[in-house]
């Protein structure tokens, strides 16, 4: 079970509401997919006409499934275009590149109880949680806050599951979040996934109610992405200039043009690729350089770090 990228085929696609599209993806070669965990996401490479999007979507397939991955995508008018691409362009039979599943939102295994608060499409990671908790016999409660007309959209995944409450904006149907948070026993873990405003509200209320920070979890997709804005780098020793694309690392770009750069972990930890920075301002994303070293602005780890200004000059 070693690999980085998957080639997937769209096996089924359906609208489960006017703004929600469900996709079922299988391995394009008919083989088995790597199993994935509750809370895992899949990064899809969506090759549009003008640019390539790499968007991460929560897997809603049952944890451990190897026959197919399932996702639900909401069409977001303000999105970078990935959700629009999925809603408008993708059809059954299309082939997509994807990364192996990642997980930045796994349930905490030591929890005595799991309390989930979802806002609308934010329910997706919790659909896999429910299957996981059913296997382990964990104590849990799921509160879904959504529009009234969407209250039944997720029924196919919630059927037969206890501990699920649905709330919407009407008298008697709203979720009293402060009361819910105040009533939880010691050992409870809180997970929230929804619109940013709702996430922030729940996090603030939990802190005010004395929840230990380590028991409060919020899904952030942003940190799964390693790319950023495109920039240019001049390699002084080699005398060549390279353009670093949005979806590639500086190291990958250097390698692409055939300049040899030492590296080991490719994750910003080992420090092997540390390179003198002769000019330009770095956007440091490594775990290696000390604050003082960053301050001097003279070093960079090209495996993860990028340019803050438009052009870097490296001693390579």
């Amino acid at each position: 079970m070693i690999g980085e990228t998957l080639t997937l085929k769209v096996a089924a696609a359906s609208a489960i509401s006017p703004s929600l599209r469900h996709l079922r993806l299988v391995a394009a070669d008919g083989g088995k997919l790597p199993p994935a965990a509750a809370g895992a996401h899949l990064q899809l490479v969506l090759k549009g006409a003008t640019r390539t999007h790499r968007n991460a979507y929560s897997l809603i397939s049952r944890p451990g499934a190897r026959d197919a991955y399932e996702i639900i995508v909401r069409r977001v008018p303000s999105s970078r275009g990935g959700s629009a691409f999925i809603h408008e362009q993708i059809k059954v039979g299309d082939v997509l590149e994807a990364g192996w599943p990642g997980n930045l939102f796994a349930p905490v295994r030591t929890a005595r109880r799991h309390l989930m608060i979802a806002g609308g499409i934010g329910i997706t990671p919790f659909l896999s949680y429910l299957a996981d908790f059913a296997f382990g016999g964990a104590d849990y409660a799921l509160h879904l806050c959504c529009r009234e007309d969407e209250q039944h959209v997720f029924d196919p995944w919630l059927a037969g599951k206890s501990g699920v409450s649905v709330h919407w904006d009407a008298d008697g149907r709203r979720l009293d979040i402060p009361a819910l948070l105040a009533a939880q026993p010691v050992g409870t873990h809180l997970y929230v996934c929804g619109p940013a405003a709702m996430n922030d509200e729940v996090l603030e209320l939990a802190a005010a109610a004395g929840w230990p920070a380590s028991h409060v979890h919020c899904e952030h997709f942003g940190s799964a992405l390693s790319g950023g804005e495109a920039f240019r780098a001049f390699l002084a020793k080699s005398g060549v200039e390279v353009s670093v694309g949005e979806d590639e690392s500086l190291l990958e770009a250097i390698e692409r043009i055939g300049v040899k750069a030492p590296c080991l972990c490719r994750g910003g930890a080992c420090g092997v690729c540390v390179t003198p920075l002769l000019d330009g301002e770095a956007d440091h994303r490594d775990h290696y350089l000390s604050a003082a070293e960053r301050e001097t602005g003279r070093l960079i780890l090209p495996c993860v770090s990028r340019a803050r200004s438009g052009r870097l000059v490296l001693d390579l």
């Binding site: 790597p34 599943p101 990642g102 972990c265 994750g267 930890a269 080992c270």
Partner: peptide, 20 residues
């Protein structure tokens, strides 16, 4: 020398399918 801090940060990001 900070070896363990760096190693821990790296391992927390360890990816499925990419053992080290």
């Amino acid at each position: 020398t900070g070896v363990f801090e760096r190693a821990l940060k790296y391992l927390l990001m360890l990816r499925l399918g990419q053992p080290v």
